[in-house]
Structures are given as structure tokens and as C-alpha cells.
């Protein structure tokens, strides 16, 4: 079973790698964006789907990774292959710090604290003008010449996201992943099997934050710029809804959610700017009518 899944995944990646042959820049842009959000959403699902911890501030780490990479690259002129890992280390440290405060109490506190810290990161980004450019954002974040074209950047993103998704798949299916699910089911019992439950959750939080940071770094390179909006709660809400819509009880659900929302937002924003309202309706519909998301719907169909 995992073997066939692996083959399927390899097949999809192989097909995607052929995309530049189509010659459509638009398609390449769209696919790059989808890939970035697939990674972002899957990183969040480690928390929601596996640990049962609903983060309302995941965009904070997306922004930290993005700003970190952009600032190192642009302000300090550090080469990309150093800047990106450095930005990830920075995101990991900050996720561990913030995470250690967020997992101290119940899941309700977790949700409140993630929103609060998310907004704090946004406020810092917004007000620290000398470093982040404030609400003007950081412009001219230039990629090195070898990933300068839409096609080469797409291939680069495909490579990074594929590797990252593999890593996240392993995390989800590791002893840690299984332990997270056990903690979600019954924290007291897990604790009395000898599990230091909070520390396990903290490790998961740090992993999730770091991979969100990777997605953020790619996003900054992709747009050649980054703005405080990337840390704003609406960004957190969007990725959260990708996870719920796709299906939080499945590893691959958030990928479907990311694809659906990105494509939908493209079309919607051409007609109206009431995107948040539409997001809310999508979220409500999911909660009441298909709580296991699109992946849940597909699975139910498959069983019949």
C-alpha cells in the first residue's frame, strides 16, 4: 500500500516536472504558488490533524521564514544557498520559543496564544521599519540567476517542496506522529505511559513552524517581495481553511485544499474582493456538511 502511494507521488512529481514544456508562464506561476501553499498547509496539518492543536497564527512562521530569507538575501547580500538555511534555523528557534509558551496549557489556551503571538509578530514586522520596511514591505528580493525564470523557479520549488513533503510524510508516520495522535486522543493516558506530552507537542510545533518558514522563504522569492500581510491573521485563516477544506484527518487532504483555494481565489479576486467572506462560507459549509473535508468525501465514495 505505501509502495503504490510512493509510486503515485513520484508519478505526479514527474508529470509536474514536464510542465515547463507547456510554455505557459501563467500555468507555471499558478503551479508554483500552489506548491508553496501545499507545503504551508501540510505543515499546519501536523498540528491540527495529528496533534489536534488548532493554530490561528501559523502565518507568523511563514512570515518569519519569508522576511528572514529576504533580509539576509537583500540587506546582507548573503547567497541564497546560505540565506535559506539560515532563515530556517531562525524560524526553528522562534517557533520553539513561542511554542514552549503555547503548549503549556490546554488546547483552548493554545488557540488563543497562537493568535496572540501571530498578531505580535505582525505588529513587530509592521513597526520595525528599519529592518522590514514596515507597511511598504521589502521589494526587489532577487533570486540568483539560476532560478531567475518562471520555469527554473518552478523546478526549484518543485524540488524543494517534494523533499519537504517527503520529510513531513516521515514525521507524520514516525513514532512522534503516532504519539501526537495518542496525546490528542487522551493526554492523561499518554502521560501515564511515560510520554512527556508537552515536550512532544513542542517538537511538533517547532517542526510545523520551520516548514511553514520554508514555504514563506519560497513565497518571498516567488513574489520577489514580502509584505506584513503575510503575517496577518487572515493569512493564517486562509491556510487553516485549506487544511479543513482538504481534510484534516488525512495527510494528503491539505494538498487538495491548497490547490482548490488557490485556484478559487484566482478566479474570485477577478470578480470581487470579498474573498474573506467567501472563505468564511466555505469554512462553514465544510464544518456542517463535510467535516472530514474533500479527502473525507472521496474516501466515503471509495468505500461505497
Amino acid at each position: 500500500m505505501p509502495h503504490s502511494r510512493l509510486l503515485l507521488g513520484a508519478g505526479i512529481v514527474g508529470l509536474l516536472a514536464l510542465l515547463p514544456l507547456s510554455g505557459s508562464t501563467y500555468l507555471m506561476y499558478l503551479s508554483t504558488q500552489v506548491l508553496i501553499f501545499v507545503l504551508f498547509a501540510t505543515s499546519l496539518n501536523i498540528l491540527i490533524g495529528y496533534a489536534g492543536l488548532v493554530s490561528f497564527g501559523h502565518a507568523a512562521f511563514f512570515a518569519i521564514g519569508g522576511y528572514g530569507c529576504a533580509i539576509l538575501l537583500r540587506t546582507y547580500e548573503i547567497p541564497l544557498l546560505l540565506a535559506m538555511p539560515a532563515a530556517l534555523v531562525m524560524t526553528a528557534i522562534l517557533s520553539a520559543l513561542i511554542g514552549s509558551l503555547c503548549v503549556r496549557l490546554t488546547s483552548y489556551y493554545f488557540s488563543m496564544l497562537t493568535l496572540a503571538f501571530g498578531q505580535l509578530i505582525w505588529a513587530v514586522v509592521f513597526k520595525w521599519r528599519s529592518m522590514t520596511g514596515g507597511d511598504d514591505g521589502l521589494l526587489r528580493v532577487d533570486s540568483p540567476s539560476w532560478i531567475d525564470t518562471p520555469a527554473s523557479f518552478f523546478i526549484f520549488t518543485l524540488l524543494v517542496v517534494t523533499l519537504a513533503m517527503l520529510a513531513l510524510w516521515i514525521v507524520a508516520h514516525s513514532p512522534l506522529g503516532r504519539t501526537l495522535m495518542a496525546i490528542r486522543e487522551n493526554q492523561v493516558r499518554a502521560g501515564f505511559l511515560g510520554v512527556h506530552t508537552r515536550r512532544v507537542q513542542l517538537v511538533a510545533f517547532t517542526i510545523a513552524g520551520t516548514f511553514a518558514g520554508l514555504a514563506g522563504a519560497l513565497f518571498a522569492l516567488f513574489n520577489r517581495s514580502i509584505f506584513p500581510d503575510s503575517a496577518w491573521w487572515l493569512q493564517s485563516a486562509e491556510v487553516l481553511i485549506m487544511v479543513v477544506l482538504g481534510g484534516m484527518n488525512s495527510f494528503f487532504g491539505p494538498m487538495v485544499g491548497a490547490l482548490t483555494l488557490i485556484v478559487l481565489s484566482r478566479f474570485t479576486l477577478e470578480v470581487t474582493d470579498y474573498w474573506p467572506g467567501l472563505l468564511a462560507i466555505i469554512l462553514l459549509a465544510t464544518l456542517f456538511f463535510f467535516p472530514n473535508g474533500i479527502a473525507g468525501l472521496l474516501k466515503a465514495k471509495g468505500k461505497r
Binding site: I170, P175, F192
Partner: peptide, 30 residues
């Protein structure tokens, strides 16, 4: 106090992961 939505097998599996102190191991599949 068990893990109600996991199978019996998975319940015991978790207990063994905890006993072997493998709960932080995220770098390889279970």
C-alpha cells in the same frame, strides 16, 4: 482510559513507543 479512536493494536503500539522512549523520534517511520 484508553485511546478510543485507535485500534487495540495501535493502542499497544503507542505504549511500546513510550516504553522505548521513542516518542521524540520524528526522523524515521514507525
Amino acid at each position: 482510559s484508553v485511546f478510543p479512536r485507535m485500534t487495540v493494536w495501535e493502542n499497544v503500539q503507542i505504549a511500546l513507543v513510550a516504553k522505548d522512549q521513542q516518542e521524540f523520534c520524528f526522523w524515521k517511520p514507525l
